[in-house]
Amino acid sequence: MVSAIAAGIQFGWALQLSLLTPYVQLISVPHQWASFIWLCDPLSGLVVQPIVGYYSDRCTSRFGRRRPFIVGGAFLVAIVVFLIGYAADIGVSTGDKIGVPRKPRAIAVFVFGF
């Protein structure tokens, strides 16, 4: 079972690494900034993981110490995956012009979701 979970994680990483950079270029993120976007993930993990660990260690929920954080994290991940996937559409619906190379609202939604 542990191997099956690890295989799923590896499939997720492979898809993210192979498809996310072309999507970043599709919403017109400048090429030199694409590597900075990839830094968002480890930097946010550096900040968020110790905070979640601190609060989950002190959690006294009737559902356990970790379950509320797992459920909350899964809910947030579902929302941000939606934001990342539809960043271009959300950008257009909030004012980005179709056919214009620069899409600042789509980039902002993508970076926030990522």
Rank of each mutant, 00 (worst) to 15 (best):
M1F: 11
S3F: 14
S3Q: 09
S3E: 10
I9M: 13
Q10G: 09
W13H: 06
A14V: 11
A14P: 00
A14W: 08
L15M: 15
Q16C: 06
L17V: 11
L17E: 12
S18G: 12
T21P: 00
P22K: 06
Y23A: 04
V24C: 07
V24W: 02
Q25M: 08
Q25C: 00
L26V: 01
L26W: 03
I27S: 03
S28E: 11
P30A: 14
P30N: 10
P30Y: 02
W33G: 00
A34H: 00
S35I: 10
I37T: 06
L39Y: 04
L39Q: 12
C40R: 02
C40Q: 06
C40S: 04
P42N: 11
P42W: 09
S44Q: 05
G45T: 05
G45S: 10
L46V: 05
V48M: 12
Q49W: 01
P50V: 06
P50A: 06
G53W: 07
Y54G: 01
S56H: 05
S56W: 05
D57I: 03
R58T: 05
R58H: 15
T60I: 04
T60M: 08
F63K: 09
R65T: 09
R65G: 13
R66Q: 11
P68H: 08
G72R: 05
G73Q: 07
G73I: 07
G73W: 07
G73P: 05
F75W: 09
F82Q: 04
F82V: 14
G85K: 03
G85D: 08
Y86H: 15
Y86R: 13
Y86D: 03
A87Q: 03
D89K: 12
I90V: 13
I90P: 02
I90H: 05
G91F: 02
V92E: 08
T94V: 13
T94N: 10
G95N: 09
G95L: 06
K97Q: 14
I98Y: 02
V100T: 11
P101M: 07
R102S: 11
R102H: 14
P104T: 07
P104Q: 08
R105G: 00
R105D: 06
A106F: 03
A108N: 07
V109A: 11
F110A: 03
F110E: 02
F110C: 02
V111I: 15
V111L: 04
V111E: 07
V111C: 15
F112Y: 09
F114S: 06
